[in-house]
Design a protein around this nucleic acid. Structure first.
Lengths: 326, 326
DNA sequence: TTGTATGCGTTATCAG
DNA sequence: CTGATAACGCATACAA
């Protein structure tokens, strides 16, 4: 039933050469021309393919990278998966995908599986610190764990400042910084830090609101209602730490009868695009997902791993999405 | 530098037992209680983990399934990836992800890599028939290749009929069926077949328009303009073979000053949800992505592979999304 | 029940 | 430059 795959031994016999010679041909080492031809013919004839398990057993090297992501539901994550896959493929690496949030606290389990699987490296966007950097090369995305765990992220701080600058340039006189997220600290927290610093530098008064572990923008309703004067908000600019929050804030403002961008301008963060038309959901600071992916792969596969930086921030850019005055 | 992983031999020595005994403990076979205890203690102490490559070499079985998808950009695909990953994880399988459309015609290359990688099975949403069903178990999604390649899909035909029935129940008297897609035949083509048949059965006149390899709904503009009477479309119901098309058609109709759903009701197909609020983009026929994923995995991992059907269609459902009269 | 020995398909180390 | 041979870590048939 199961057509037995032919092995190097078969190829050697077929070609009338020694086993080692076949191995050398397969691995592109120096081999006499006549031998190489014979071996290649035999390989072709038998449809030989190397057995990665036998090879992995010897070399302790597979061409597999584990990628650990929270889920596939957020466009940022699926986009990351896509780009990492692309970068990996270009270098003839394969991607083993682990999703953590399907079950609660699956991260540890994932890490266990990954360790057991003898992958060549790990690219992970994880919340808990994974202690295995001495074991398997690990690149963290968006979360800094310490000097010995390289972390790749957007220039979140710079993005926050950029948002402040744009809002200022667009004429804002008093702004609000909104943040929702998890208690776990991450690089993305620097977004509001950057924004607030930017506002200070520009001399623009800025209020700062943060809520942990809430979903939706409803928690801000109260604040908005208390800061209405004659039906108008006292802010003319709002920075949200994610596009999703920005969208929800816009909805909320609409309910309160406040126009965007006429009354108040909003800038989000992420650069998520709508599925239906490819446009931004809102004016936003765009994360360079492709660069992040490529950088992770590059750092992971780099020969000289002693030189990798512990934190690498990639430049973000401004994207117009209708919630600012162009 | 590289802390050498301990092997079964190490465990055996540590526990003072034979190599085979350790193997039996690891694989959960019958072992004397005192031995088991000693071995488990040694395993714990040494932090032993089985080497999947050595094991794979012996057993010719890895716990890896290759998943081949066109991309991660369409929510249907990323959702599929998510659900397949979940189903696989539940059964302690791992997922190797291949994306084909990053480069043109990467399918063959993917298949080559997959074959070489000795995975236990393949779940693929591919356009070209992949000829390897006798080699590695293969489950196809949404594309029927023949009786020996099991295919899992939504009940596309039934979904089309369902759409016709709903439109009829919502009072439509004359409808239009719109289709855009690739020339490659797929299960999804049955959507319009089902819709048209449904209309015929219900005695509702139905026009049928199909365009190959176009993007956007602009190709239908001309048809719409020619079928306006006094600014009103002669149709009061439109079925689109995808949600994306439905969204674009709605845009187009808006440009023409036609109201949805007052003047014309639209039903799409897929059940894609908006990222910002989780709602449907339009009224739609929902594909049971989780069921599809689970079914694929189930069929692939089923012991008795002689019993797998060659085509399995999963029930779809109706989802309201604002483009019909509730 | 447990210990021993062989082989899975490669790569790498030797001699020739 | 090539041929033989020893590991790699594990599962298993066989012997005890």
């Amino acid at each position: 039933m199961k057509k037995a795959m032919s092995t190097m031994k078969d190829v050697a016999r077929e070609a009338g050469v020694a086993l080692g010679t076949v191995s050398r041909v397969v691995n592109g080492q120096q081999v006499g021309e006549e031998y190489r031809v014979k071996v290649e013919a035999a390989i072709e004839k038998l449809g030989y393919q190397v057995n990665p398990y036998a090879r992995g057993l010897k070399t302790n090297k597979t061409n597999i990278i584990a990628v650990i992501l929270p889920s596939m539901e957020h466009p940022y994550f699926s986009s990351l998966a896509q780009q990492i896959n692309l970068s990996l493929t270009r270098r003839d690496y394969q991607m083993m995908l682990f999703l953590t949030d399907s079950h609660h606290n699956r991260e540890d389990e994932c890490v266990r599986m990954v360790r057991q699987n003898k992958v060549d490296g790990i690219i992970g966007l994880t919340y808990n610190a994974v202690h295995l950097s001495d074991d398997i090369p690990f690149i963290s995305i968006d979360r800094y764990f310490g000097p010995n765990v390289p972390c790749v992220a957007s220039d979140n701080y710079g993005g926050g400042r950029l948002a402040a600058e744009r809002l200022a340039a667009l004429g804002c006189k008093k702004v609000l910084s909104l943040w929702t997220g998890s208690a776990t600290p991450g690089e993305a927290d620097k977004r509001v830090d950057g924004f607030i610093t930017g506002c200070n530098l520009l001399g623009i008064p800025c209020d700062d609101l943060r809520y942990v572990d809430v979903d939706g923008a409803d928690v801000f309703r109260d604040h908005f209602q208390k800061h209405l004067i004659g039906g108008k908000l006292i802010y003319d600019g709002i920075f949200c730490n994610t596009d999703l929050l920005a969208i929800q804030v816009r909805e909320l403002l609409a309910e309160l009868g406040i126009r965007v961008p006429e009354d108040v301008q909003i800038i989000g963060f992420d650069g998520i695009r709508r599925f239906d038309n490819g446009k931004f959901y809102c004016t936003t600071i765009i994360q360079p997902v492709d660069k992040i992916a490529e950088t992770c792969v590059d750092m992971l596969l780099r020969e000289d791993r002693s030189q990798v930086p512990s934190l690498l921030c990639l430049p973000v850019s401004y994207g117009f999405g209708g919630t600012t005055k162009e």
